[in-house]
């Protein structure tokens, strides 16, 4: 079996601060991490590898420094890492990102399972996985919290707000991971030595010329959506004391306000 994991390097949003004057993100000094859901996707791939005979390839589209995320993935136990990096990919929205990733997956060739995270914490869109699946014309199961294989099929438990669905799918299939799926491992010492030893350049880098791709479909120009403006949400506190004759009256006023604000 062959598994491909799509993994994105993201800024740790817990650390992201906003420049209140310019309304932009302060990225300086903000650590970059492997997107948390993608770590669950990778962990699952490594578990499947341990139980079945297979290889794990990790793919990431991003600037050269995204190599660090791929190195970490190799240190965790991935077999092969490919960075998709090219000026032409810059400014891609989910459509354009999925177009590049799908083209790279086609170049990798054979695969049985593609694992993505459910969503990346910078954009929170959760769209890239399903769009890749559509472009490759393969089935998808999103929000996966348990994955098994039986008789050449994937048996996946997917979360919904009202209960879980058990879904059976032929392969190849694309799955998106949520954090309930597993607890990601730490890299082993041996893995770290292999991945980070000086001179070991074990990450392939592919640019636009390495892929069979329609250049009008990628980057800023190929994106279907554009950011028109961005702004910092204003979170000023109303700071209103609710008065009333007694607790009952105050409670009624409060619930009225919450209801008007559509909060309950």
């Amino acid at each position: 079996m062959k598994i491909i994991v799509c993994l994105k390097q993201v800024p740790d949003t817990n650390e992201v601060r906003i420049n209140q004057e310019t309304g932009t993100l302060i990225r300086d000094g903000v650590p970059s991490i492997i997107n948390p859901d993608d770590k669950n996707a990778l962990e699952e791939a490594l578990r499947i590898k341990a139980a079945h005979d297979c290889t794990v390839t990790v793919l990431s589209m991003g600037p050269p420094q995204a190599k660090n995320a791929l190195k970490e993935a190799l240190a965790m136990g991935a077999d092969e890492a490919i960075l998709l990096s090219d000026r032409a990919f810059g400014g891609s929205d989910t459509w354009a990102t999925a177009t590049v990733l799908a083209a790279a997956i086609e170049k990798v060739g054979s695969y049985d399972v593609i694992l993505c995270g459910r969503q990346a914490i910078d954009g929170d869109t959760a769209q890239v996985g399903p769009e890749i699946a559509e472009f490759l014309n393969i089935p998808q199961v999103t929000y996966a919290k348990k994955i098994d294989f039986k008789d050449g099929k994937a048996i996946v438990t997917r979360y919904t707000e009202t209960g879980d669905y058990v879904i059976e799918s032929k392969m190849p299939v694309l799955l998106t991971a949520i954090k309930e799926l597993n607890v990601p491992r730490y890299p082993t010492v041996k893995g770290i030595l292999n991945a980070y030893s000086p001179g070991s350049d074990n990450i392939k880098v592919w640019g636009i010329d390495d892929l069979t791709i329609d250049a009008t479909q990628i980057g800023l120009k190929g994106s279907t959506t554009n950011v028109y403006k961005s702004f910092v949400p204003t979170k000023s506190k109303t700071n209103e004391m609710i008065d009333g004759l007694n607790g009952k009256e105050k409670a009624a006023k409060l619930i009225g306000k919450l209801s008007d604000l559509k909060l309950i």
Binding site: T94, W95, P130, E161
Partner: peptide, 23 residues
């Protein structure tokens, strides 16, 4: 933008060939 809508939304947009803005 439920767990079902966010599954089917991007699949629809990709089939049709248009953009989708999430959540």
């Amino acid at each position: 933008a439920t767990s079902i809508g966010r599954d089917i939304g991007p699949r629809l947009a990709a089939k049709i060939g248009t953009g989708l803005v999430a959540d």
